[in-house]
Design a protein around this nucleic acid. Sequence first.
DNA 1: GAGTGGTCTAGACCACTCG
DNA 2: GAGTGGTCTAGACCACTCG
Lengths: 231, 231
Amino acid sequence: MAKYPLIKTTLKERLLGGHYVEGLPLPSEPQLAREFEVSRMTARRAIDELEREGYVYRVQGAGTFPTGKRFRQGMFRVRPFKEWARHPEHRTVVLRAVEVAASPEIAAVLQVQSGDKVAFVHRLRSAGDEPLVIEKRYINAQLAPTLLDHNLAVESVHEVLVGRLGLALTRVEQTLEAVNLRQEEADLLRVPLGTAAFLLRRTTFGGMQRISYVNYWVRGDRYAFQDSFEP
Amino acid sequence: MAKYPLIKTTLKERLLGGHYVEGLPLPSEPQLAREFEVSRMTARRAIDELEREGYVYRVQGAGTFPTGKRFRQGMFRVRPFKEWARHPEHRTVVLRAVEVAASPEIAAVLQVQSGDKVAFVHRLRSAGDEPLVIEKRYINAQLAPTLLDHNLAVESVHEVLVGRLGLALTRVEQTLEAVNLRQEEADLLRVPLGTAAFLLRRTTFGGMQRISYVNYWVRGDRYAFQDSFEP
DNA sequence: GAGTGGTCTAGACCACTCG
DNA sequence: GAGTGGTCTAGACCACTCG
């Protein structure tokens, strides 16, 4: 078992618990190395990840500081598509739902062997006559062997995984990008080639296992994410 | 001058130039270390960043592989601009900072009278030589009369409003859109017309008063918003 | 079994911050 | 000048892949 994840978890707990004061530095890297009885490089590795996740920032010569709360966590809550599906005017069309062999990229994301069975679901969501969202999803088939027996035009994948297959989803990681639509996506969404869209990539975890990886292309001209918070 | 950025740049050029074949591994870490005459840890550091930026993925025991184009992504984290400003490679250029009369649209957003004085700040943020973010900000000049006396290439507007002018910021409302850049913005960011970008619109409140309204255009090819949560 | 990436050590020198 | 983070070295052992 590696040492740096424990250091990272411990520091994260302290940061979230307010053990470190905003504006004041954390213990220095040599101090943390001594406390956790590791080399400085190993302590640094843990801090590297905390910095990348936005919990701390570093200033050479000055120290490592807690990041202000308002910026710490996801700025944008994305609404679950479960709500989407309930709206009477919203429709989902399943373009494809098959088992495929994992490409090396998908294997890396889901942490399975290249060539392992993966369930692939390709769907298009519309409001009224207007197509709005393309979904391409890959699910570890070993963890969800009967997923494709369900009617995915009506049921949400999340509902099937949790409600029917009894999987526990423990964590979600996602990134949001702004991209120009390529021909294939533009055609499906019936907009011009190159139209700006959101690309939301989401990985869903069950414990240490990666259950599902999904890409959503969301029309930029029809969708905006809203947020409000107290600083 | 550090060594790993050169290794990273060189490998990135090779990857984008197609020197490495999809499906086949790159040279191993010890090989790359020998080629660049560095230790293995330094070669790893360069590869770490390429992996994080989505150019390669690694499989323990097998090797490091070029990522298929579909999954390549720019992974710049969004940071508070205070931290941004402290980074030695990050620069802010003030393109314009003047008092103007509020247009009807700005007057509506800030809830002042059309024609009232509004401070307008137009800035460009860059990392190294690369322009990344355009900012156009409007501040209620009655609430922040001396804002423009400060050096806004160095100080953050937030710091001036709160730290110098003693304003209390009580709420933030924001929306995030995906847009195609128009000529003016594309020129500033040095990308082609129509490139996809995030448009972040933010209104900052002090009690019932609206203090500041800002639009950020953020290059979609270099930025991603990250989030992780427990469902 | 040879080779690969994953982790870790115990040092070292540097640029930078801060009182 | 003391302390900090940034970078780098030359090793080491491990788990894993693959022919």
